[in-house]
Amino acid sequence: MRRLARSTSASAAVMAIAGRTLPEGTDTRDFEAAAIACRPYLLRVAMVQLRDRDLAEDVVQETLLSAFGGLDRFEGQSTVKTWLTAILKHKVLDALRRRKRDPVDASALEGELDLGDIDEFFASQGERAWENGPGPWGDPAAAWEEKRFFDMVDFCLQRLPASTARAFTMRELFEMETREICRELSITESNFRVLMYRARMALRACLESNWFLQPSEN
């Protein structure tokens, strides 16, 4: 397979295109540069899903090649990044299907479904009120303006257990429906609810302690 340059130093202009819809008649090379500028993001998402560097690299490579090959199908309704995310979704699902169901994954899932650790955010007695958090986040949307915030989001996602991270990003980044996610991960709807709850509670706590309640960050 043809390898695209891994370390492309994207110009500011190119970076600006990546997050925007392309106006009609945009140069193909600009599109390609915009797509390559999305590579680090795509790789992060692929790593959250696959937890395997080589496999993730391959899937991102396939995504970019497929995007370049199907450029005529990009209608400018979404941003380049969103369009690439949709292609990545299909490539990731293919990779997960090709990979034999891992017995390690299956036993790890048992642990992820046990919410004993998440329960520790609450008092063990009485009305089971919150013991740790949630703290005041001020104006959290201001964090979106900082690139480092998304590095922290990525860090927190990578720290989630495998199936939890997969279910959460399938739902929130790939915007898949519950039924579809359950089928791809071979889990029940009740399992899905537990994984999503675990993901949200853990991400909330991770961003709280590493970003929002870090005096040096804000």
């Binding site: 993001y41 969103t82 964090a143 989001v153 929130e172 980044l173 991400l203 909330r204």
Partner: peptide, 10 residues
């Protein structure tokens, strides 16, 4: 968290 993920992919 949901808005953040939407923002990340946009």
């Amino acid at each position: 968290l949901r808005s953040t993920m939407q923002r990340w992919r946009a």
